[in-house]
Design a protein around this nucleic acid. Structure first.
Lengths: 345, 345
DNA sequence: CTGAAAGCGCTTACAG
DNA sequence: CTGAAAGCGCTTACAG
């Protein structure tokens, strides 16, 4: 990286002159056009671009906002990011935008490569989202140089904003049980994320306890996309005895399944009842045909909470790791449990 | 804002000592625990947080990435942001992540309050998205201190990545005309954005030329949300003679309308044909019931293009404002024009 | 155990 | 018309 001095040397002028020209004050300071030309040529030749840190430091009238890194797995569902960012924007507006939020895409399982966590001179703090199992292992065994808040994950060691994934599975199984089901199917997003596995576990273990059978062939694995749901439903309808209860650990999958069911004349909830985990925008499941019963993960509120914790940390108001557990309310709609709507807690 | 010197003074030590303690090297340097305590107390009392710019400047082993501001209207559709960010992440990964992207939420009509454009010491360059009419006016009449790329807008004065909104409306009208329609309805997102108005104009003017009538009562205005579409459809079905051709200037609205039509037993495309402008994630319209015919705005590719232009600007490879116009292909699906699928360009 | 000083890359008031 | 120098807030090698 070349500096203003390099440019000055190449152009045969002083650094101050280069600065004046680059800041558009050449006319005002009556710099000769020849000098200007030489300087601009040198800038191009050296591919010089100014060091913003130095500029900021020097020109102090600029408010110096704390810089927050948002580590987001680049292959994670983008819809989630949208909901997250919505909450985050709300928070920054509420808190009068006192932070610079920098988006740091990372590859799952490779969080350990990120320098921002290892050095204290890049960001003031970090929010880490979508960690894989091995990313979490890395975090458990390292000491980041900056304060960290985990999004949608939990650890004793860190501040965390999370939900009870196991409970989501449990409640879905309980509702199916209440509806009298003895068999269930499950569509799973294949995933490097812990959270989804825990959901499945909660569902399956509670089914077992409640006398609901889940045959191995009724466990269908797919991508966490609408298309993935379409493919999963293709397998589902070919089953010999398709269960009349279906749990989807992501609403994308459920929307894809719904598409296929509608096309094939399979009626929801008459022929099959569906419960999904609400990860993407609430509107999508609220106005599907039929509207889907979902367990809603309040992404926006969780994001806001993240920012508030970060804000407290930066103000030195956090003594030790604190975590916030968000409730995940079951939103009963037409696809399952409508007759219990009034009584379901 | 307090500095390390303030902390040092209050604690009665030198700035160097404070730095050592704050960087976790107290043990290694055998700083007495009393001193450490005094310093940490002072940090808290002054609510000190380190100036990242100064840290970066001093510790040069940190790569000094150019900082790009992403100005995004905070009330704009979040789904759009998701698609945009997807393209942006792809680009940063492709280009080996040579940029720091800072999210700068702004309020529509108030872009002129943003300091980042007026000073050259905050960001190296900016992408501006979702400008309102008055924001555009501001941009036309000002000279930003940093390079700017407009997203989904056009101006002679700036680099821009955009689409032909008028043409979208024209092509929709032409397809309806080809299908033999003589009447059409239109559901419009009420909007501060220019782009949407231009679409409507293109549609309406071409309808007129093609002998398609749009009665005033067949122009329905709603929010650019699925719920908005639900409400608009509520009005639509109460019309005395609802047209059999419906243009929605956003796919959100179309999805909401579809929800209502399905519920009321109105068949698409038999009873009414729909064309929508595809702004949110492609999957949503691909797997609706029925799948929607859309004019797709390639948000992801446009975002990637933005980053590439920014990259060229920073490398001094852009002489004067360049703009990239993206094609918006009509994707024919079941909701309209299926019989022309093969022949439609 | 702690301090004084140099220097990161810039900008700007001042001098000539 | 242009240059030399100070200084923004930090960190670190060095001195004691």
């Amino acid at each position: 990286m070349s500096t203003i001095k390099d440019v000055a040397n190449l152009a045969g002028v002083s650094a101050g002159t280069v600065s004046i020209i680059l800041n558009g004050k050449a006319a005002e300071r009556k710099i000769s056009s020849k000098t200007q030309e030489r300087v601009l040529d040198a800038v191009k030749e050296l591919n010089y671009h100014p060091n913003i840190s130095a500029r900021k430091l020097r020109s102090q009238y600029v408010s110096n906002n704390p810089t927050i890194a948002l580590y987001w797995a680049s292959d994670a569902r983008v819809n989630l990011m949208a909901r997250f960012l919505k909450g985050l924007l709300n928070a920054t507006i509420q808190l009068k935008s006192n932070f610079d939020i920098i988006i740091c895409p990372y590859k799952n399982d490779f969080l350990y490569l990120e320098n921002g966590l290892k050095q204290r001179n890049i960001y003031n703090a970090a929010i880490i989202a979508n960690t894989s199992i091995s990313d979490m292992k890395y975090l458990e065994n390292t000491v980041p140089k900056i304060p960290v808040v985990l999004f949608n994950r939990f650890s004793d060691k860190y501040c965390a904003v999370h939900v009870d994934n196991y409970k989501m599975g449990v409640e879905s199984a309980l509702l199916f049980s209440k509806m009298g089901h003895k068999n269930a199917a499950i569509m799973l997003a294949k995933s490097v994320y812990l959270a989804m596995d825990v959901r499945n576990k909660g569902f399956m273990e509670t089914c077992k306890k409640s006398g609901i059978q889940i045959l191995p062939e009724n466990i269908i694995i797919s991508d966490n996309t609408i298309k993935g749901g379409v493919e999963a439903a293709g397998k589902f309808i070919k089953l010999d005895n398709p269960p009349r209860a279906l749990f989807c650990n992501s609403d994308n999958i459920a929307l894809g399944a719904l598409h296929v069911f509608n096309k094939k004349g399979i009626k929801v909830p008459e022929d099959v009842e569906i419960i999904a985990v609400g990860m993407s925008s609430a509107e999508n499941t609220e106005f599907s045909n039929p509207p889907l019963t979902v367990i809603n993960i309040p992404m926006e509120e969780m994001a806001t909470s993240c920012i508030k914790i970060i804000s407290d940390i930066i103000d030195h108001d956090v003594e030790k790791p604190t975590s916030v557990l968000f409730d995940t309310p079951m939103i009963i709609r037409d696809s399952c449990g409508n007759k219990y709507k009034a009584t379901w807690k």
